[in-house]
């Protein structure tokens, strides 16, 4: 599937889509969105890139194998759940800082939890898609 138009478009679309994914991720706390959808959008961005430029170049772009995103995300989520325990609170109780950052909003453990979900979803979607397409083609 080599098409100049798609190839050129994907080069511009990838950063845009990724930005959009991150935007959706941070937006989730107040408006529709969240880590799960954000992760799916990000993986669609990479899949589009893979369609246009071939799997190898997407893998090169990612640098790490997509499987590596899974443990990273799981660890972030788990740590965000464990963090309150150091302050003597039960596992997974939400802790917020009172700093308000534009776009991102409030900083707190649920945000990091959502970021973890984001990475896990990217890792899973890409692992499944890449593995299947590599085995098939």
């Amino acid at each position: 599937m080599k098409s100049i138009i798609l190839k050129t478009a994907s080069n511009y679309l990838l950063p845009l889509l990724l930005l959009f994914a991150v935007f959706i991720l941070f937006r989730g706390h107040y408006k529709p969105g969240g880590g799960f959808v954000g992760g799916l959008i990000a993986s669609i961005a990479f899949v589009l890139h893979a369609f246009a430029n071939g799997l190898q170049s997407t893998r090169k772009l990612l640098r790490y194998p997509p499987g590596a995103f899974i443990p990273t995300g799981l660890a972030i989520s788990l740590l965000s759940g464990l963090a309150p325990m150091f302050a003597g609170k039960p596992f997974m109780s939400a802790e917020w800082l009172s700093i308000h950052i534009p776009i991102i909003g409030l900083l707190g453990t649920p945000l990091f939890f959502d970021i973890g979900v984001f990475f896990v979803v990217i890792g899973i979607a890409l692992t499944i898609l890449f593995t299947i397409s590599e085995t098939i083609l």
Binding site: H29, G81, F91, A94, P110, L111, V117
Partner: peptide, 16 residues
């Protein structure tokens, strides 16, 4: 501290 109830449920109330 979230306005999106669905997301709050996912990451906070039912985070586990």
């Amino acid at each position: 501290k979230g306005k999106n109830v669905v997301n709050v449920m996912l990451v906070d109330f039912r985070g586990f």
